[in-house]
Design a protein around this nucleic acid. Structure first.
Length: 877
RNA sequence: GGGUGCUUAGCUCAGUUGGUUAGAGCGCCUCGCUUACACCGAGGAGGUCGCAGGUUCGACCCCUGCAGCACCCACCA
């Protein structure tokens, strides 16, 4: 006997332990069954899981559990990401808070020890949370991006790309974060519109100080690093400056006026100061003209000795000081408001500084070619499809990927420099001596790799690459990559590029991009806003099953997904509903242990047939990653069909007794199948209930490995479905009539039903007589083709049936009158339109037969209804 | 500046290649503690599908324009 309620908190842990005990989630590379593989997007070891992770866990677990039940050899690889910059930041912040020390105070080695400690704790937390969500991961394959074998993959990949010339080291202008002290890739820089100023500054002509040109800039502090002023070659205004030199204000350095068509004469003053050291565009122009590069700032964006009197000031102070000086020297002409977009560090939101430095790059342009083609020719399918365009757009305009980071936490770049001749050696191990000069002193590159470089290898590295492992053979390419669209470029694109380059094969067949999690108002969740809904707290209180069902119910193909506690609560009600339906069934049929469904019984036929539809729909929807559709289909079946109608149908004393006596198994079997159908969505409660089912595959230890329901043509009864649908409609109509006439639910009435179409229709209802009586609360019901006088009876019409109720039994009719008038209006209009269509020659010529027949049928029905309604209204008044 | 989406019931969203009277959940209103469930049951109200044109026998769906919203990418100083 089941408890009166399912208490998730008391059951979930032990159910999960039960699964682990029976080792149900472990994949076997030697198994014969076809494989189905997902690698879980490894969460950063920066802290705890949020709602986005919960969504990922839920959706992937649904896919995996269904495939497992379908008999696939499923593998779901769990893991975590070292998340270089993010984790380093968190640990640094902690260190500062707790010990008032910077990482430099500790030194590289000691600091890394601290980070490892942090990682252990964080990973432990994350793993326990993934379990709490019910995730059926193969824990024997738990991976971390800095594991030895994963690091080997990273080095191997670096080496291979280097040998092919696809990785190179270059002096280039990159985005530098003065707070994180590292280079960033373009993707890690987010542009933001910032209201700023446009300052117009005098640059005097060398030797003729009364002549000058005016340069407009948003960054006056960088003028200290100017090495030219550029004007458009055809800009007449500056013709007299061609070939001359002007003086940099404040420091009196002469720089040439150069001609470059990059300059837009319409913009600003048409004269552009060129600062190759601190502006990506200027860098390009500077290179074109062979201009010197002046690096004005140190790693903190504090001005260095190149800045002369301004040395020691940071960017912001330097700007103020420079402006002040310009003002004093009467070189500042005007100041206007100007909004422009400024790059910010994705992690710490500091304004980044373009900086010329030695960095490592990947020729992404080369790798993108195959990665682009794979999606173009649908070898890799992106769902929803509209994201393909975004992917194409980015891939076609991809630029070199800066992969070196001046951090401590991460994969050290596998390059060693000879301390004598500076020759670089790239390899998996430190070389013993220099291959060029045989010197034995070599030093490894200080930098580490971009986190996404190792993430990009995740599908292959977790499966054992570069070894020719069993896992790689069995499970690669993986089946589907499921994640949020926000990391399409960061992660997905790079996995495709690196996976294809390293193995020659695509890393996965399908990319499913789920929506972003928002709060109730559609706002991004963030700690600072305080609108974060914590999945663990919710699952603690309302149950993991409810949370998971809510998440799948809301996984639309849109871009946002709103999470509210109320929504989860409603799903909890659904959990309760199934629980109680099961209680009812077990209360009456717990001794029904043999499959013996009376298939001559129309109610049985009907519920089997309905179940059959739902099975098809759920499977179809899940194949297309339409989680919301699948969830809704099951919800509707269990609640509105199985509970509201089937159970109510069999609930009458006689029916129940007769079913118990004959040990009819329908109620149990349909429920058991519905439970299996629901299991991927709500693993915990379904496991618990499945174990209680008197009929189930007893050879199996868990519903996790029970067969996932598939449609079964032998259980399809379309005609019965139609008949029962008519019965349901009749009951509903009687109830409505009772309702609008304000009859007490306790009051029994009598009525007579006749057909508006063929007489057979009414005969078909006779077997349901008792059932209708019970459910519509009737004292008696007659089925006969008989008219009653309108003085004494009211006739109610519904499509193909009508019934008569004695007026004496009805109460106030005024409300009903209004309602029916409106209905008559609507139906008359619909009839008119149907009629118009049928008269329309062109419609009759071009519409498909089925549509024409439909309209004709509709017209007949409407006509009957309109006539009957008119009569009904007459009767009423 | 370039790109991608979105606009359907009070709210969140479905609506498959244009074809019968546009759906769901929640919320709301009325009634009911009927022995699985009040975390429930029965019934009801509620939409000129953002606006304006066009194509078509027929448009929520296709085309054009407009308005509003969101997101992504971006070196106009």
């Amino acid at each position: 006997m089941l408890d009166t309620q399912f208490v998730p908190k008391d059951s979930e842990n032990s159910i999960y332990e039960f699964w682990l005990k029976h080792d149900l989630f472990k994949a076997n590379p030697d198994a014969k069954a076809p494989t189905y593989t997902i690698v879980f997007p490894p969460p950063n070891v920066t802290g705890v899981l949020h709602m986005g992770h919960a969504l990922t866990c839920t959706l992937e677990d649904i896919l995996i559990r269904r495939k497992r039940m379908q008999g696939f050899n499923t593998l779901w690889v769990p893991g975590t990401d070292h998340a270089g910059i993010a984790t380093q930041m968190v640990v640094e912040r902690n260190l500062m808070k707790e010990e008032k020390k910077s990482r430099h105070d500790l030194g590289r080695e000691k600091f890394l020890e601290k980070v490892w400690e942090w990682k252990e704790k964080s990973q432990e937390t994350i793993v326990s949370q993934m379990r709490k969500m019910g995730g059926s991961f193969d824990w024997s394959r738990l991976a971390f991006t800095l594991d030895e074998n994963i690091s080997l993959a990273v080095k191997q990949c670096f080496l291979q790309l280097y040998n092919e010339g696809l990785i190179y080291r270059d002096m280039a202008i990159i985005q530098w974060c003065p707070r994180c002290h590292t280079a960033l890739s373009d993707l890690e820089v987010k542009c933001k519109e910032i209201p700023g100023k446009f300052w117009h500054i005098k640059y005097r002509l060398k030797g003729t100080p009364e002549k000058f040109l005016v340069v407009a800039t948003t960054r006056p502090e960088t003028l200290l690093g100017d090495t030219a002023v550029a004007v458009h070659p055809e800009d007449e205004r500056y013709a007299e400056f061609h070939g001359k030199e002007v003086m940099v204000p404040l420091i009196g350095r002469a720089i040439p006026v150069i001609l470059d068509s990059y300059v837009d004469p319409q913009f600003g003053t048409g004269a552009l100061k060129i600062t190759p050291g601190h502006d990506p565009n200027d860098y390009v122009v500077g290179k074109r003209h062979g201009l010197p590069i002046i690096n004005l700032m140190d790693e903190n964006a504090v001005l260095n000795s190149e800045a002369g009197a301004f040395a020691g000031l940071d960017r912001v102070k330097a700007r103020a000081k420079v402006l002040e000086e310009l003002q004093k020297q009467n070189l500042l002409i005007k100041e206007e408001d100007h909004t422009h977009s400024v790059g910010h560090c994705d992690r710490c939101v500091t304004v980044v500084e373009p900086k010329v430095s030695q960095q490592w790059f990947v020729k992404a342009e080369e790798l993108a070619k195959d990665a682009l083609r794979a999606v173009e020719n649908k070898e890799i399918r992106i769902v929803p499809e509209e994201w393909e365009k975004t992917y194409f757009e980015w891939m076609r305009n991809i630029r070199p990927w800066c992969i070196s980071r001046q951090l401590w936490w991460g994969h050290r770049i596998p390059v060693w420099y000879c301390q004598k001749c500076q020759t670089a050696h790239v390899g998996l191990e430190a070389p013993k001596y220099c291959s060029k000069c045989s010197h034995t002193e070599l030093k490894q590159d200080e930098d580490v790799l971009d986190t996404w470089f190792s993430s990009g290898l995740w599908p292959i590295s977790t499966l054992g690459w570069p070894q020719d492992s069993k896992d790689l053979k069995a499970f690669y390419p993986t089946s589907v990559l499921e994640t949020g669209f926000d990391i399409l470029f960061f992660w997905v694109a790079r996995m495709i590029m690196l996976g294809m380059k390293m193995t020659g094969k695509i890393p996965f067949h399908t990319v499913y991009l789920h929506p972003m999690v928002r709060d109730e108002q559609g706002q991004k969740m963030s700690k600072t806003k305080g609108n974060v809904v914590d999945p663990l707290e919710i699952s603690d209180r309302l149950g993991t099953d409810a949370l998971r069902f809510f998440l799948s119910w809301n996984a639309f193909h849109g871009r946002d997904m709103r999470v509210s506690e109320e929504g989860v609560e409603n799903c909890k009600f659904f959990v309760n509903k199934i629980w109680n339906a099961s209680r009812f069934v077990l209360m009456h049929f717990s001794d029904v242990t043999e499959s013996k469904s009376d298939l001559s019984n129309e109610v049985n036929q009907w519920i089997w047939s309905r179940l059959n539809h739902i099975k098809g729909e759920v499977n179809r929807s899940l194949e297309q990653y339409r989680f919301f559709e699948a969830a809704q289909a099951i919800y509707h079946f269990i609640w509105s069909e199985y509970c509201d109608w089937f159970i109510e149908f069999i609930k009458s004393k006689e029916e129940l007794e007769s079913r118990k006596a004959s040990k009819d198994s329908t109620a149990v079997e349909v429920l058991e199948e519905a439970i299996r159908l629901l299991h991927p969505f709500m693993p915990f409660v379904t496991e618990k209930l499945w174990q209680e089912m008197p009929i189930r595959d007893r050879k199996l230890v868990s519903v996790c490995i029970a067969k996932y329901p598939e449609t079964d043509p032998s259980r399809s009864y379309p005609q019965t479905e139609e008949r029962v649908a008519r019965v349901i409609r009749l009951i509903e109509q009687i109830r409505t009539t009772r309702g609008v006439h304000q009859l007490s639910p306790a009051k029994e009435i009598s009525l007579s039903v006749s057909s508006l179409a063929s007489e057979g229709l009414v005969k078909e209802l006779i077997p349901f007589k008792e059932l209708i009586k019970k459910m519509a609360k009737l004292s008696s019901i007659e089925f006969e083709q008989k008219e009653y006088p309108k003085q004494t009876h009211l006739s109610v019409v519904m499509r193909d049936l009508r019934f008569f109720i004695s007026k004496a039994e009805l109460g106030d009719l005024t409300q009903e009158l209004e309602r029916k008038k409106k209905e008559l209006q609507e139906k008359t209009e619909a009839l008119r339109r149907a009629d118009e269509k049928l008269r329309n020659e062109r419609f009759m010529n071009s519409a498909p037969q089925a549509v024409k027949e439909g309209v004709l049928k509709q017209k007949t029905e409407l006509k009957r209804e309109v006539e009957a309604l008119q009569q009904y209204l007459e009767d009423l008044s």
